Simulated assay, not measured.
Amino acid sequence: MGRVTSSRETSNEPVLITEAQPSLGDQHAARKKRYVITMGIRIVSVVLAAAFYQTVWLMAVFAVLGTILPWIAVVMANDRPPKKKLDVNRYRVPAPDRILEARPSSGRVIDSEP
């Protein structure tokens, strides 16, 4: 029976793990964490707005912060990481152990035309 090879095994290009995107689960967990932190800050700002009701300007600052933070939290939660720009010339330079050395010239010129 023959061995089944995948396209990765037959490809000459190396697989660059360091440039791989984070998994969708990791991205989702990071976005949930940012959302929870932002909404926690919102709760604190609403409580502080209620606590500083006698200082109008401070209460207004905390109230505005508590009002706009849900919008900011949703925008941040729906945002995904930016795509990485790939360097198209990264495989052009061969590794030093793969460079072929030139043969020494014999000093003769060979004419290939008859």
Results as ranks from 00 to 15, higher is better:
residue 51 A to F: 12
residue 55 T to A: 14
residue 81 P to T: 08
residue 44 V to I: 14
residue 53 Y to F: 12
residue 85 K to N: 10
residue 56 V to L: 13
residue 58 L to R: 10
residue 64 V to T: 14
residue 51 A to H: 13
residue 58 L to G: 04
residue 44 V to S: 10
residue 48 L to Y: 02
residue 83 K to G: 11
residue 51 A to S: 13
residue 80 R to D: 11
residue 48 L to K: 05
residue 52 F to A: 14
residue 74 V to R: 04
residue 60 A to S: 07
residue 86 L to F: 12
residue 84 K to P: 08
residue 46 V to R: 13
residue 82 P to I: 00
residue 82 P to E: 00
residue 45 S to A: 11
residue 77 A to S: 04
residue 46 V to E: 12
residue 62 F to T: 03
residue 59 M to N: 13
residue 48 L to F: 08
residue 84 K to A: 15
residue 61 V to R: 02
residue 63 A to M: 03
residue 56 V to Y: 13
residue 70 P to C: 07
residue 77 A to Q: 04
residue 57 W to A: 15
residue 84 K to L: 13
residue 63 A to Q: 02
residue 65 L to K: 03
residue 49 A to F: 11
residue 83 K to Y: 09
residue 53 Y to H: 10
residue 65 L to R: 03
residue 67 T to M: 12
residue 80 R to G: 12
residue 57 W to M: 15
residue 80 R to C: 08
residue 75 V to W: 10
residue 63 A to H: 01
residue 81 P to V: 05
residue 52 F to L: 13
residue 57 W to N: 15
residue 85 K to Y: 08
residue 67 T to D: 03
residue 72 I to Y: 03
residue 47 V to I: 11
residue 87 D to E: 12
residue 52 F to C: 13
residue 45 S to K: 00
residue 79 D to S: 05
residue 61 V to W: 01
residue 80 R to I: 07
residue 62 F to Q: 05
residue 68 I to P: 00
residue 68 I to C: 05
residue 79 D to K: 07
residue 49 A to E: 06
residue 78 N to W: 09
residue 61 V to C: 03
residue 85 K to G: 10
residue 57 W to H: 15
residue 65 L to N: 03
residue 74 V to S: 04
residue 67 T to L: 14
residue 73 A to P: 02
residue 65 L to P: 02
residue 82 P to K: 02
residue 65 L to E: 02
residue 69 L to S: 09
residue 77 A to R: 10
residue 53 Y to L: 07
residue 72 I to Q: 03
residue 49 A to P: 08
residue 79 D to Q: 06
residue 54 Q to E: 15
residue 47 V to N: 01
residue 56 V to D: 11
residue 75 V to H: 10
residue 63 A to D: 00
residue 55 T to Y: 13
residue 61 V to Q: 02
residue 86 L to P: 11
residue 47 V to C: 07
residue 51 A to I: 14
